[in-house]
Amino acid sequence: MSLRLILDLIARLALWLLLAPLLPGIINKVKAWVAGRRGPPVLQLYYDLARLWQKHAVLSTLASPGFVIGPAVAWVALAGAALLMPLGPAGSALSFRGDMLLLIYLLALARFCTAWAAMETGSAFEGMGAAREVSFAVLAEATLITALLALCVQTESTSLVTMLAPAAGAGAVLLAAGLFTVLLAENCRVPFDDPNTHLELTMIHEAMVLDHSGPPLAVILHGAALKLLLFSLFLTEAVLPLGQLSTLAATGALVGGVLAVTVGVGLVESLLARLAFRRVPLLLTTAFLLCLFALLMAWKGGAE
């Protein structure tokens, strides 16, 4: 039994690790397609990771070992959060009441470790990025908890497997919009952050990792890809009624949903400009209100 659990976990982990770097590649392809360019290959991130993993690293003279350990812990936290996510028809390997809170707090652990590693260098830019990351996360976390509450109230359960199986009910559209906004904010995509900008003053996540190189940078990039996949999966499973479909249909819907979300991110990134920083709280508050109204609709739907 326990051996099966371990094998299951290893299989899931392998799936996550292998598939995650695909998503940024797809986004970049969509952006290139919209702009009429050929763009980098879809597998570009895999090549980058392999190359970075072999490189030697340059560390700031000010940095403690925490500069390297931080990204490693952040990666473990993200991978742990990923393993808690149920995979549609395959269910979840480790599921218990309240696991969604562990997931949220593992994401917080990853955030803390990244911010810690960023502050190691004493660079003003990295401090700026870290400050923005942890500040905007306040609103993003409130939004996520509200979304979870909406799902919990809708399904009258408190574990991810049962929460994510049925559809999100009447408020599905609101919830989807709210979660998509949080996805963009938490993964530092346009309109919150521009992953391709060259101006450090306007960056969030990229500013935090300016000083990283070699294997730690590889770990950070892979962790970011994991997080993007995690949020896309969460959004898809929260909205689609995967539990009511047959295995094949559910798998198809899951893959299709994740792809749709990824393409959506790419389109948003091609068509929108980055927001001014003072407008970011407004957008996140909107996302929060969307989830809040989804929660209230879930509550009202069940009461009648």
């Binding site: 709280p281 407004l282 508050t285 909107t286 209100l289 809040l292 109204f293 209230l296």
Partner: peptide, 17 residues
Amino acid sequence: GFVPSLLLGAGGTIAAV
């Protein structure tokens, strides 16, 4: 401000319901 008025509006909507 926009955020306070948004929160006010949301609170007003909930209160109206």
